[in-house]
Amino acid sequence: MSQSEEPIIKCVNVNKWYGNFHALKDVSMEVRKGEVIVIFGPSGSGKSTFIRCINRLEEHQKGDIIVDGIELSHDVRNIEKVRMETGMVFQQFNLFPHLTVMQNVTLAPIQVRKWDKAKAEEVAKQLLHRVGIPEQAHKFPGQLSGGQQQRVAIARALAMQPKIMLFDEPTSALDPEMIKEVLDVMIELAKSGMTMLVVTHEMGFARAVANRMFFFDKGQIVESGTPQDIFKAPREDRTKLFLSQILSH
């Protein structure tokens, strides 16, 4: 992992309000190419809002977000460029229920990247193989288990060949026995050198592959560091309390 050049994501003093509610307060973060970042914190702490700002599903009102050298502003072309370079995986999968698995994965490459169908399907087959469900290509999402659906969602995001992958609580809606199959895919992806921002409470995942961790609370970054720092010697009391709560059982 080269960690020298310009950061691929650069956030400077990002602020966001929902009405009077101050959801993000001066959040700054730099992510280098190939880094795996885990973001955790209590619900309502702004962690999902933050990663949704990175591909402009949410609009920040103050501060700068620069993704792969493109500044996110009101310019629609910039937003579309950033979205082409960032894949996103949602808590609720959000697969397109009226399309088959194959169509889910190939739609964006064909329509946005303008690949021909044969190429898109070839890539899709490889990706479905990579996430471990090569035989489900012609089923509809409703016919798959939650874990399989989430793996299709990962394949769908990867099909656009993004430089960055955003994961918004990818395992929170899954039954316990399906969490592992999704985490395995994410660990493999992390080891292949993908830049990843992951909002999750899966501390095992964080320990295994995260380069750095950020603890969010009340719209702010309270603490950040390597997994060793955070797990062995958290500096802030709030971090200690939160970790003790989620690791206690």
Partner: peptide, 18 residues
């Protein structure tokens, strides 16, 4: 149609029309 469908479509880079 759930909001998540719009979000997923946008996150993939599809334009509003697409």
């Amino acid at each position: 149609i759930p909001k998540g469908q719009f979000e997923a479509a946008h996150a993939l880079g599809l334009s509003g029309f697409q």
